[in-house]
Design a binder for these strands. Structure first.
Lengths: 294, 294
DNA sequence: GGGTGTCGTTAAGCTGCGCTGCATGCTGGA
DNA sequence: TCCAGCATGCAGCGCAGCTTAACGACACCC
């Protein structure tokens, strides 16, 4: 059909053949089979050269739009390859949204403006099956460094996000440079996280230090937890990345013995083809996470 | 691309192969070359079966609209073949419009409602070159029966349109059953036709009868000419098909010695493919012209 | 009007695409 | 654990589709 199109626009079999890089013979034969399978005469000889019949014009018109579609598909594919288009689905968890996701997505949108980002909070459910099944391209997860590998999923280390002790400004330990975790064993605690791997890290650290924290008030997000601490309700452990702005009435101190750390990973499907969108998002995440790495 | 489409909708290479009547191997290889020339991964294996990537979905979408276009083209071609669509260009001359063209086109539009008719009056110019060059499909012409053939054009005889003498009701010859042309030699004449083959027929007949008509008033159409005759301005010769309604104040009589006849033909391009539209138009013309054949 | 260049078409021949058949690796269910 | 069904790679082969060559036809030009 594209051959027919070329013949119709050029008005001659030979010209079309030159244009397409064929011999006139090839074009003629091609047209013959097209006429046979169209069941109608498409061209008629008019002295020197040929002219399309009604059927020929019809078919040539369709050939034109099909050629258009083909070119458009090619362009779309090029856009996709160059990262000027596409879509990337990211799953994250609540306590990492502001500090990591927001700036990384901002970077992605700046570098690849054509890429659409589908952000979704994976609160209760485990995002890894979604990654494995291709429903998501990247998932941010907290996961022990020595956790067993998951089949079909590749984990990219983003940062070791260390927890800090957060104390009311007037607290008896507020002036110490470094705290041992066990020193907080008898304090009233402000829980800062819902159930999940982040809270597990804190609980495990406390258990290793020989106690279970006595939680007197439970928050679900870090700024609120800081507010509770500032009000003197108790002490808390907050991860480095969760300390967006430090409340003036609290003190933040490193913690030892043990040093609680939530390890943040990007989970990717092992078999996923490398797309610029995912690659750029990943780079942005690492760039944002880097400063918190320790 | 249509193979890719089938794979995407069916979700499996094997199912697509069954659907297309190929072996899974053929489909797989086809996809491999498509991926190579697309420069991007289009499908990814997901356990049992395959799932399209972003690029695969993109290309599959374009394949769908291309398939749609292809089907539409096929349907359009079928319409054309069946006479449900198409276009026919007809050239005619003024003095045959009402009597032949109008009813024939009406018949065509009734039998093939989808066919568009391009009607054009070919007044001054000769319509035959337009037919030869494909600008018109059919031309109505007046032409002597023994005129030489025209290269590349086929003439279909429609009718021998005999001229009648038209006299004022009170004319001295008005009660005669049949007139000899020479009897009108000294009359005042109402010219009914502009220059062209129709008038030539009349002039030639008069010349054969030994005189040149003395035209006192010239009309360009038959009804007006009848009006002039009815007003007593003179006599006239009008063809059978031009006598739509006979004016009450005129008498119409056959003419002999000679019997002027304009022979009406449909001119068709010799090399034109047979289309239902043209064929039906021709049948309608012959059906309309039949009653005037004598 | 005849010669000539160009055009479209046809026949013959050959190359390479694209299909089949079969073997292999792999996944998911019994 | 085995087995059915899937996708894929490789050898083989038929045929679509190209090229070369030759022919008839038309337009242009001397």
């Amino acid at each position: 059909m594209q051959v027919l199109r070329a013949v119709v626009v050029s008005g001659s079999v030979s010209a079309a053949a030159r244009e397409l890089g064929y011999t006139p013979s090839a074009v003629s034969q091609q047209l013959a089979v097209l006429e046979r399978e169209a069941g109608a005469q498409l061209l008629e000889r008019s002295g020197r050269g040929v002219r399309p019949t009604e059927a020929g014009r019809l078919l040539s018109g369709y050939a034109a739009v099909i050629g258009e579609q083909l070119a458009e598909a090619q362009a779309g594919l090029d856009d996709l390859r160059a990262g000027r288009a596409g879509r990337v689905a990211l799953r994250y968890f609540a306590t990492v949204g502001a500090s990591l996701v927001a700036p990384a997505v901002a970077t992605l949108r700046r570098e690849l403006p054509g890429v659409r980002v589908e952000l979704r909070l994976a609160e209760a459910e485990d995002p890894l099956p979604q990654v494995r099944d291709g429903l998501a391209d990247v998932a941010l997860v907290v996961r022990a460094a020595d956790a067993p590998p998951v089949d079909g999923i590749r984990f990219v280390h983003l940062c070791d996000d260390a927890y800090r002790a957060v104390l009311p400004a007037g607290h008896r330990l507020a002036d110490r440079r470094v705290l041992k975790l066990a020193e907080l064993a008898d304090e009233a605690w402000v829980g800062s996280e819902g159930p999940g791997p982040c809270r597990d890290v804190v609980l495990a650290a406390c258990a290793a230090a020989g106690f279970a924290p006595r939680v007197v008030v439970q928050s679900e997000d870090y700024p609120t937890a800081q507010g509770f601490v500032a009000a003197g309700l108790g002490v808390s452990l907050l991860p480095e990345t969760g300390l967006g702005g430090v409340h003036p009435a609290v003190r933040v101190r490193p913690v030892r013995d043990p040093r609680p750390v939530r390890v943040i990973w990007a989970a990717l499907r092992e078999s996923a083809p490398a797309t610029p969108a995912v690659h750029t998002l990943l780079s942005a995440l690492r760039a944002v996470a880097g400063p918190h790495a320790g």
